[in-house]
Each structure stands twice: as C-alpha cells, then as structure tokens.
C-alpha cells in the first residue's frame, strides 16, 4: 500500500474540481510573447560545461577591454612620467657612483607600480563599482583583469626603461637590473592591492605602500642601527620570499574583493 495514498484524497479532489480552469485572454498571450521576444537575454551560466579555447580568449579580451577605463589616461601619464624621471635619475647617478648603478631605478620602479595598483579598487577609483557588481561576469575575474592591466602596464614601462638604461650606461646590465626590481615590484604591488581592498581607500593604500617601501629602502641604504635588525628585502636571497608574499597578498585581496562585491549585490 502506498504510504502517500492518504495525501491524495478523492473527496477533496472532487471538492476542489468545482473550481475549474480559467479561460485566458488570447490577445494578452500574443502581446506577452511579442514583449518577451524584445527582452535581452542574459549571458548563460556555463555550469558543468567548459568554454572552448577561442571563447575563453574572447571572453578574457572583452573583460580586459571593458576594464581599460580603470587605467585612465591621467594615471597612465603619471606612471609614465615617474618612470621616465626614475630612469633619468638612475642614469645620472650611475655616472657618479658606478658601484650602485641601477639602484635608484630598483628603488623607484616598485613604488610607481604600487601607486598604480593602489588606485584600481575602491569608491574613489571606481564610481561605477556598484553597477559593475551587477554584471554577469564574476567579480573575481574583474578584479584580476584590473590587476593584470595595471601591473602589465607598469611592467612594460619598467622593462622599456631598463632596456634604455642598459643601452645608455656601461655600468648597468639588463638582466640583473630586471631581476633586482621585479620581485620588489610584484610584492609591493600585491600589498598595495590588498590594502586598497582592505581599506577601500586608494590614497591611504598608496601612502601605506609608500611608508612600507620607505622602510625597506631605509633599511637597505641607511646605516641606522635600529633598522639593521630588520631583514634586507632587496637582496637576491629575499626574492623568493617577496614572490610568495605577493602570491598570498593577491589571493587574499581577490577573496576579500569578491566578498565585498557580494555584499554590494545584497544591498
């Protein structure tokens, strides 16, 4: 005997059947169909399926293109000027002190990149953030796209400047110079990004990154006893640690930014 039989009571069914189905308006249905056909369809979720390689490349390109506005012209010009200035100062100093040739650029490049990254997330940096939060693209992808754009821009600038320096001064060798600034630049950019997500204030994040970098630089070049107790983060031995810190910082920052975007969506 079916246990659910008592749930399908014939008497109740007969009683309820007295309220028959309703006739509907044929014209209203036709109008509805026409209206439905004008509604834009949202992008499909692809749960359980994978986009093919071409679609993935296209999606990545579209996301990056949509995020170009974050790397605004002002920010780009500012970073370009600072990087050029840093390269010029480095070139001048390399003539004065051949033992420390390239050091100025190693000190300047990371903080320029960190400034750029600090301004990619937050209310002031992105007034359309709430609108963005309603987009069908994952917030994690958007944040990573922005980070990739700004960091790549700084990376290209720094590489061009390094090539220029190596070509202009006999005291500067290209690969050691790149190796010297790449790890600190990656680490400081990641920390600036994390701070901008944590504090949601680009200016304070940039200033904190500057303060942190000033401490690292002071430790490296100054002879102050209390700073000598801190580890020197500009040595080749410290580079793996810097990359590890960068990785953790980006992962933590992306996680926090996704939570923040979900909070915005629930508002």
């Amino acid at each position: 005997m079916n246990d659910d039989r008592h749930l399908h009571d014939d008497q109740v069914r007969a009683f309820l059947s007295a309220w028959r189905d309703a006739p509907t308006d044929e014209h209203a249905r036709t109008r509805l169909i026409m209206a439905l056909k004008t509604i834009p369809l949202p992008a499909p979720h692809v749960q359980g399926t994978r986009l093919d390689a071409r679609a993935r490349v296209l999606q990545a390109w579209l996301i990056l293109r949509a995020q170009r506005r974050v790397v605004g012209a002002t920010l780009c010009v500012a970073m370009l000027l600072m990087m050029t200035l840093g390269a010029m100062v480095t070139l001048s100093l390399s003539q004065v002190d051949p033992n420390r040739s390239g050091l100025a650029f190693v000190l300047v490049a990371p903080i320029i990149a960190a400034f750029g990254v600090a301004f990619l997330y937050g209310d002031d940096a992105d007034p359309a953030l709430e609108l963005q939060a309603a987009s069908p693209v994952s917030p994690r992808l958007i944040v990573l796209a922005r980070l990739a754009l700004v960091f790549t821009f700084d990376l290209v600038l720094a590489l061009i400047a390094s090539i220029f320096l190596a070509a202009s001064s006999a005291n500067i060798t290209l690969l050691p110079l790149i190796a010297a600034w790449l790890a600190p630049m990656t680490c400081l950019s990641a920390l600036a990004f994390l701070m901008s997500v944590l504090l949601f204030d680009p200016l304070i994040s940039a200033l904190l990154a500057l303060a942190l970098w000033a401490a690292v630089v002071a430790r490296h070049i100054a002879e102050l006893p209390f700073l000598q107790r801190l580890p020197d983060m500009l040595t080749p031995e410290a580079r793996p640690v810097l990359y590890l810190i960068a990785l953790i910082g980006v992962a933590f920052g992306v996680m926090l930014s996704v939570r923040e975007d979900h909070r915005l969506k629930r508002r």
Binding site: A22, T24, L32, I33, K37, L41, P44
Partner: peptide, 25 residues
C-alpha cells in the same frame, strides 16, 4: 532559450500560459 534561441518562446508560453494563470488565480 538559454543559448539565445528566441523561437522557442512561443512554445514555452503556449505550454504554460494557461496553467500558470490558473495557479496564480
């Protein structure tokens, strides 16, 4: 419909228009 084929709208509405109206009524 998810993949953008709007021609199925007529059929989906035809199948469920009356039934959904009865349910909501």
């Amino acid at each position: 419909l998810q993949t953008g084929d709007r021609t199925v709208i007529d059929e989906i509405v035809r199948r469920y228009y009356d039934a959904l109206f009865g349910y909501l009524l």
